[in-house]
Simulated assay, not measured.
Amino acid sequence: MSNSTKNLSDLSVAIKDWGRALGFNDVGITDTNLRTAESQHQAWIEKGFHGDMDYMAKHGVKRTRPDELVPNTQRIISVRLDYLPPQAENSDKILQDSSKAFISRYALGRDYHKVMRNKLQKLCEKIQSELQYYQTPAFEYRVFTDSAPVLEVALAEKAGLGWRGKHTLLINKNKGSWFFLGEIYTNLPLPIDEPASNHCGSCSKCIEVCPTQAITAPYEVDARKCISYLTIELKTSIPLEYRPLIGNRVYGCDDCQLYCPWNKFAEVTKETDFAVKHGLDDIRLIDCFQWSEDDFKTRMAGSAIYRIGYLQWLRNIAVGLGNAETTPEVIQALQRHVHHENAMVQEHVRWALIRHNRA
């Protein structure tokens, strides 16, 4: 074995150690070959399943060819970071209480984009500072965390971090699926890890429990039906047929993960930035609906929820209130916004009132 190969192998081990020291729960390395994923992704786009997410299509093959997105890329360092917050209120309890606002568990704390990017950058800086001890080319890199045309699940699967579940999220055999993914594209020709094997078997629980039947086939999601898409990505009116099915899910949906058997192995995060903020794990719809725009910006500063903006937040809460139990308090809350200056908000409020026979 040459010194160069030995050093690259040692560097690979060191990178994984440095990553875990920074708080990542797992680190894997893979190459840039995504030919199988490319054909699957293109077929998904051709079906129109990406909805209004134009960014999923506009970059062409750069999403599936890392070396075209970032020239000279030879390897992808893939990482995962647990996000399930400690001491969060039980999800089932919130989902079964129509007066409460259910917020996807990943959004209860600080915006993951900032946390992941900071850790990835620190890992790159560590690699840079240690590279003098290894026989390698000059270090070139670029970090990503759900922020560019990257097929992060396909890359993580190839890097051995888990397998793509039937709900299309990554599942780790020992840790479930409550984690974020991030990537470092680099020119370093590091040894690659073995891909993970699939362990979904005959289980179809995620398909069965999806409130809107958005998982149209194993390993395929029609985003246009997905509650996460409808409450986060969709910037216009939510289609009428999906509003009753959304229930009290006002930001995202976790049902496919909540019922996945592999998540019995999931662990709460040790990352303090993902701790619940502002009581978002157990908050009333009415209270959320009473926030002014300044209240929303203040409370959601540093949160992933901030990205959808105040008007979309009101739209989502209006749907939740439309699905809530009819009470004088709910009716009064809706009536306060019935003449809202924004047409989209007003439309959803009027729909909610019709649901309560208060048109």
Rank of each mutant, 00 (worst) to 15 (best):
V268F: 08
L84F: 08
Q121C: 02
D281V: 00
G165Y: 04
C203Y: 00
R80Q: 03
R164Q: 08
V27M: 04
R358P: 02
R75D: 05
N248G: 09
P86G: 11
L108W: 04
G28A: 09
D82R: 11
V268G: 00
V349G: 13
K16C: 08
E130W: 03
C206F: 11
N263K: 02
Y229A: 09
L34P: 00
Y259Q: 10
D282E: 14
S147T: 04
P149D: 03
M56T: 02
P137Q: 14
F179N: 04
R105I: 12
T298A: 13
I76D: 04
V268C: 09
G165W: 06
V27G: 04
A223Y: 04
Y112L: 04
Q74T: 06
D54L: 14
M1V: 02
V79M: 02
H167T: 05
E140D: 10
S2N: 12
L169F: 12
L188A: 00
T272I: 15
T145H: 10
L234E: 06
I215D: 13
W291Q: 07
S99G: 12
A88T: 05
V330F: 08
A154M: 10
R307T: 04
C200T: 07
T327M: 11
K47H: 12
E241I: 12
H356C: 11
K225Y: 08
I207K: 13
K297F: 02
F102E: 07
T30G: 14
R307P: 06
L240I: 13
R164Y: 00
S9G: 09
N118P: 01
N357P: 00
G48Y: 06
S197Y: 13
V319C: 09
W262S: 07
A333T: 07
E347S: 15
T212Y: 01
Y133K: 08
F289K: 04
M300I: 01
I331G: 07
I77L: 07
L230V: 00
M1Y: 06
H59N: 15
L169M: 11
E293Q: 14
A266T: 09
G165L: 13
N263P: 11
S129H: 05
Q128G: 00
D273R: 11
D287S: 10
